[in-house]
Every structure is written in structure tokens, then in C-alpha cells.
Design a binder for these strands. Structure first.
Length: 112
DNA sequence: CTAATGACGACAC
DNA sequence: CGTGTCGCCATTA
């Protein structure tokens, strides 16, 4: 099933994101092949919050292109921000990651 | 099948 | 430079 394959790829990529780094929806979607599937990436990660698989997926390392923790609401409180800080990620704003220092581009690290 | 929604992104004003 | 609008595509009603 292609749509399920899309999800699997999203998880696979997100799992590759190293600590102290973050990536964005558009890059993940583009790397997978669905250039305009940024929303689908967010949706895929959203599913993680509803299944045990999420335990193994660092979804908190995925933010929007601006570095904003748009999905923090799904982590309960500031869990998303706190986890990133624990990994060494710095913030430009209360909920905006410093993408200039912590941006991680899948196409630059994953040989797909 | 149609309409509405969303952890997004790019463009127009 | 901030706000508004459209496009994108899977999911849900």
C-alpha cells in the first residue's frame, strides 16, 4: 500500500535524525518523494501519538521549515521543547529552534 | 461522491 | 515585513 509506505518512509527518516538536530516536514517529504507532502509528514507523525510505535520515533526532532514546534501540543506540555533542549538543541524563541545551527537535511545524510 | 480539516509551504498583497 | 490566500494530499465526517 503506497500510503502506508509513505508513513514507513517518514518514520525511517525521522529515526535517522541524530540527537541535537532537527529537520522539517518539507525536507522529509521531499526526500521521500512526495515533494508536496509536508502536511502528510506531520499527519504521519501525528499517528505516532496514537500508537506504541511512537516510542521509537523521535518525532520531537521534526519541526516546520521555520523551526517552530508546531506539534508541541501533541507531546503534552513542553515535552517537545524540553527533549530537544536535553539533546543540546538551542532555541531562537521560546518555541522556535535555531535551524541555522541544528538543521539536519535527510538528503545530505541518508543515501536514498 | 462532496465538503471540511490539518504537526506545511510558497506566493501575492 | 506581516497578513492573507491558494495548493498540496491523506483522513474524517
Amino acid at each position: 500500500m503506497s500510503k502506508n509506505d509513505f508513513y514507513q518512509k517518514v518514520y525511517k527518516v525521522v529515526e535517522q535524525v541524530p540527537e541535537g538536530y532537527v529537520t522539517n516536514y518539507g525536507s522529509v517529504a521531499g526526500f521521500i518523494g512526495v515533494k508536496s507532502g509536508a502536511r502528510m509528514v506531520g499527519y504521519a507523525l501525528n499517528q505516532l501519538a496514537d500508537q506504541p510505535l511512537g516510542e521509537s520515533i523521535p518525532a520531537h526532532r521534526v519541526v516546520n521549515r521555520l523551526g517552530q514546534l508546531t506539534g508541541r501540543a501533541y507531546f503534552g506540555g513542553d515535552a517537545m521543547k524540553e527533549r530537544l533542549e536535553q539533546e543540546g538543541v538551542t532555541f531562537k524563541e521560546e518555541y522556535t529552534v535555531d535551524m541555522d545551527k541544528h538543521f539536519w537535511d535527510p538528503s545530505e545524510h541518508i543515501d536514498g
